[in-house]
Design a protein around this nucleic acid. Structure first.
Length: 918
RNA sequence: GGGCAGUUAGCUCAGCGGUAGAGCGGCUCGUUUACACCGAGUUGGUCGGGGGUUCGAUUCCCUCACUGCCCACCA
């Protein structure tokens, strides 16, 4: 390869390699290659919204998956990372509908009708659906794109239908009129998980109602929702409340709608233990159609449910002439006004309460009684047990508790949505009452359980084909909750219900990477679907990422404008920089405070890596020559030992999904240990003119670089690939082991005992190299203390004759940027006032020929001596404490003794030096 | 109301029973055989408060305070 440019220019390189990887089929997961020797590794992408765009959350999530996938390839596994997108019912339908309205095409989707509207959504999907996929490619995601799936592909839809039919026939799915969370904006029911509670400042309206049987006697009710008074069908008090229990069985006159005849407004006073004595006035108005708890009270007392609202959140005619047609919040004010006019209003008290909001539309949901489909979750016990027992592992572990708690109190799932974009519910209703007639008019034999009489007497057929006589049968107009398709993702994407090669090879998947915000929406449900349809867990490990926040800790949001576009960051800094920057700051189990500085750091690191390789390239010589032990210096041995430790630490961190630790360790090793110490030290040999030693050093450099590039590859795929080829490390390797792409090069193993023995790498080598580095640090310290610019050539004297070889001295001299380093015997007497520092080999002098301020030097030494005395006092205090000596482990005591000896030696030495100064 | 995290240098975080650490920032010096997207040096902390266990606690236990999440039908 031609000489590398001075700085790393990511754009062209990223494009080049991504195209090459795709062209070479590097990302393909092939079932037929899986064997005992070549185990499978699989992961399914959490499918992003098909019309979505890439966010930093996606960057974090998908970088982690890519790291896992690439490392698995390097470990010799057959990897399948299966990508795709989600149709995201409400979100997509809302976006398309809003756009069409903005374009003036429609005022409401009804203007187009179901068929035509859906056509528009598909058009939209074709046009915008690929965006996020393209963005993921820019990030470097190594997904098997040939297998891209969409939750509304025809085969996928068939899976969804099949599962619905199966659960229907098993009786797990039922239809009923229940209290659901209704979104007045989207006009659909929502599941409990799609509702977020928000604390709201509201008010508690106090008003009076007269007891019909006791004219002139009033009860005061406190409510947050006066607009629903027309829907009240009772007043409830606690049966043991001495203030009110005597009134149970009597009636009150409901104030609204005022124009309704009095006798039609009589509602009973019931006793119910749900009522709290202490809250409000202790008298509760019961509105069964508009409140969950009230609905239950209504059930217990056989009260009618009066629905006084329209689906869009406006009041209907039952609310009375004046409220009818008004929005619920407008109606609230109006109701209060009416109460005032009737002389029944008492007061408004400020009140803080939790209100459920539609997650998507961000408006308060309306508890609403409506006909919906529900699912009694299947395979709950095994799904719960698999996590409890640790057979499936959660990272961080604490989410297992959250999961367990939810599974414990699991509620039936409302799965029908009053939308058009989604999987249509495969149920047809018979326009008649008699099941036998229905059976005959179907026109075909049904399976057991497919034909059923529903709660309200409707005869329903559920199956994969429409009944023959469509005059008599009408299909349910609702679609299924998006998550009712997502929960099948791990196996529906692999060809289920056929027993495909893919399923056999790659199911269950290995890891799932997702955000904790969808633990109930998605993770829990996938586990249940997995057990129900595949008979086992769908994935072995679940990694929950943190949530990306801005550097002030706020959530990313469009309105705050604090959500940077990852694509901008990629074009500014490069994909590898973004990946590395994010991973380095994303510790397991913690939210990530995003700061562009981190990406900058990633970019800087890429440049560093680039230049370190450039430096190697500039040295020329054969690539990856054999290392010869007889030429190894202690620095060589030191860096090899450091590399060995780094391999171990990085591997261990990745095994435990501690990505930021792995990134941190690599960063430190490469920048500090390799570049700052080793490369700088190696320059002594590289310029020495001794060919054999020089070549050997290059061999060590190559060895370290070839390992480091591989360790970095999962984090930074593009630059490592470029450098891998640029330095020629691919040359000798078979094409499936790094010859073609670094992503198939073997993941570095610890060097191993044989290697260490062969090259004579011992802990002492590390100690010796560190001792030399200590001399350098001491010398640099002296420089600083006497304000000598680092470019000023000075002569050092080390009182350690014979302790260091000439080559070793040369290394130290170079690192100190010194004119010379002279070794002298212990008899050598430093000129008075010579600055001195202690090193493991002996005192280091910096003779300055009278340039030095003696007083300053004495002061400096004085400070150092004082520091050592402090330490000595601490250690001695411990050692003179009998309880410590007797109570602490012998090793600890011994360690303290050693410390005392060391400090004492240093102290004596420094004192001697100070005396020498006079 | 219940549960789960967190509180360590100006900022972001590591350490989790035996001399307080890293990165970033700040400051000083610097065109030394890659790299100023750099190098060298340096400044920053009674480890949230209070108890307890221990020879010894940032580290273990209790308690309080604050912050953030999750769960919960108090109208």
């Amino acid at each position: 390869m031609s000489e590398l440019p001075k700085t790393y220019e990511p754009q062209a390189i990223e494009e080049k390699w991504y195209a090459q990887w795709l062209n070479d089929g590097c990302f393909e997961g092939r079932a037929e290659r899986v064997s005992a020797k070549r185990p499978a590794y699989s992961i399914v992408i959490p499918p992003p919204n098909v019309t979505g765009v890439l966010t930093l959350g996606h960057v974090l999530n998908n970088t982690i998956q890519d790291i896992l996938a690439r490392r698995a390839r390097m470990l010799g596994k057959e990897v399948l990372w299966l990508p795709g997108t989600d149709h995201a019912g409400i979100a997509t339908q809302t976006v398309v509908e809003r756009t069409l309205k903005k374009q003036g095409v429609i005022r409401h989707r009804d203007d187009l009708g179901r068929e035509a509207f859906l056509e528009r959504v598909w058009e939209w999907k074709e046009k915008h659906g690929g965006i996020i996929i393209q963005q993921l490619k820019k990030l470097g995601a190594s997904c098997d794109w040939n297998r891209e799936r969409f939750t509304m592909d025809s085969e996928y839809s068939a899976c969804v239908q099949r599962v619905f039919i199966d659960l229907f026939q098993k009786g797990s799915i039922y239809r009923g009129k229940r209290m659901v969370n209704w979104c007045p904006v989207s006009h659909t029911a929502l599941s409990d998980e799609e509702v977020v509670m928000k604390s709201q400042q509201g008010s508690l309206t106090h008003f009076r109602v007269e007891i019909a049987e006791r004219p002139g006697t009033f009860l005061t009710i406190a409510t947050t929702r006066p607009e629903t008074i027309p829907g009240d069908s009772a007043v409830a008090v606690h049966p043991e409340d001495p203030r009110y229990s005597a009134f149970i069985g009597l009636h009150v006159i409901r104030p609204l709608p005022a124009e309704m005849p009095r006798e039609q407004r009589l509602i009973p006073i019931v006793g119910d233990t749900h009522v709290e004595f202490g809250f409000g006035t202790g008298v509760l108005k019961v509105t069964p159609a508009h409140d969950r708890a009230d609905f239950e009270i209504g059930q217990r007392h056989g009260l009618p449910a009066l629905d006084v609202m329209n689906p869009d959140g406006t009041m209907n005619s039952l609310a009375g002439a004046e409220l009818a047609g008004k929005d619920r919040f407008e109606a609230r004010a109006l109701a209060i006004q009416k109460l005032q006019e009737l002389g029944l209003f008492e007061k408004d008290e400020p009140h803080q309460s939790n209100v459920g909001f539609s997650e998507r539309a961000d408006v308060p949901i309306e508890p609403r009684l409506s006909q919906q489909w529900f699912l009694r979750y299947p395979s709950v016990p095994s799904s719960r047990e698999v996590v409890r027992s640790g057979q499936m592992r959660f990272f961080p572990e604490r989410w297992a508790k959250v999961y367990d708690h939810w599974m414990e109190g699991i509620q039936d799932w409302c799965i029908s949505r009053q939308l058009w974009w989604g999987h249509r519910i495969p149920v047809w209703y018979f326009r008649g009452k008699d099941p036998e007639n229905a059976r005959q008019s179907l026109g075909f034999e049904t399976e057991e359980g497919a034909l059923r009489v529903l709660e309200d007497g409707t005869v329903a057929y559920c199956g994969d084909r429409a009944p023959g006589d469509n005059q008599l049968w009408e299909q349910d107009s609702d679609v299924l909750d998006t998550w009712f398709s997502s929960w099948l993702w791990p196996f529906a994407t692999m060809g289920w219900p056929q027993s495909t090669e893919t399923l056999k090879a790659f199911y269950p998947t290995t890891d799932l990477v997702t955000g904790p915000d969808i633990i109930f929406f998605w993770v829990a449900r996938m586990i249940m679907a997995g057990f129900e349809y595949m008979g086992e867990l769908p994935f072995r490990n679940v990694y929950f990422t943190g949530i990306i926040r801005d550097k002030q800790g706020r959530k990313m949001s469009k309105s705050l404008g604090n959500s940077p576009d990852p694509l901008d960051l990629i074009s500014k800094f490069g994909a590898d920089a973004l990946r590395f920057g994010v991973m380095r700051s994303a510790p397991l189990g913690q939210d990530v405070l995003f700061d562009e500085k981190n990406v900058e750091l990633g970019r800087n690191f890429c440049t560093k890596l680039w230049n370190a390789c450039r430096f190697r390239q500039m040295q020329g010589g054969a690539v990856e020559a054999e290392i010869r032990s007889e030429f190894l210096s202690s620095e060589d041995k030191w860096i090899l030992l450091r590399l060995d430790r780094t391999i171990q630490e990085v591997s261990a961190a990745l095994e435990e999904y501690r990505f930021s630790d792995a990134a941190q360790t690599l960063y430190r090793f490469f920048w500090n240990e390799y570049c700052d110490w080793y490369v700088e030290a190696s320059k002594a040999v590289l310029t020495s003119g001794e060919e054999a030693r020089r070549e050997n050093t290059l061999a060590v450099i190559d060895f370290v670089l070839a390992h480091t590039l591989r360790l970095f590859h999962p984090f930074m795929p593009f630059i490592t690939e470029e450098l891998w080829h640029g330095l020629g490390f691919h040359q000798e390797l078979p094409s499936d082991q790094g010859g073609r792409s670094i992503q198939f090069a073997h993941w570095p193993k610890p060097l191993g005992e044989d290697f260490l023995a062969h090259y004579g790498l011992l802990p002492e080598d590390e100690v010796r190299a560190n001792a030399k580095f200590d001399v350098v640090l001491a010398g640099r310290g002296l420089r600083r203390d006497f304000n000598l610019a680092s470019n000023k050539k000075v002569a050092f004297v080390l009182q350690a004759q014979g302790a260091l070889s000439e080559e070793e001295c040369e290394v130290i001299r170079l690192l100190l940027n010194a004119e010379s380093l002279e070794l002298v015997s212990s008899g050598w007497a430093a000129p008075r006032g010579t600055p001195t520092a202690l090193t493991p080999f002996g005192p280091l002098f910096l003779p300055l020929e009278g340039l030095v301020d003696m007083a300053a030097e004495r002061e400096r030494l004085g400070k150092e001596i004082a520091k050592i005395q402090q330490e000595l006092i601490k250690v001695r205090a411990k050692l003179s404490n009998d309880t410590f000596v007797q109570g602490a482990p012998a090793a600890v005591v011994q360690e303290h003794r050693q410390r005392e000896t060391d400090w004492l030696a240093k102290l004596t030495e420094l004192q001697r030096i100070r005396e020498a100064l006079g």
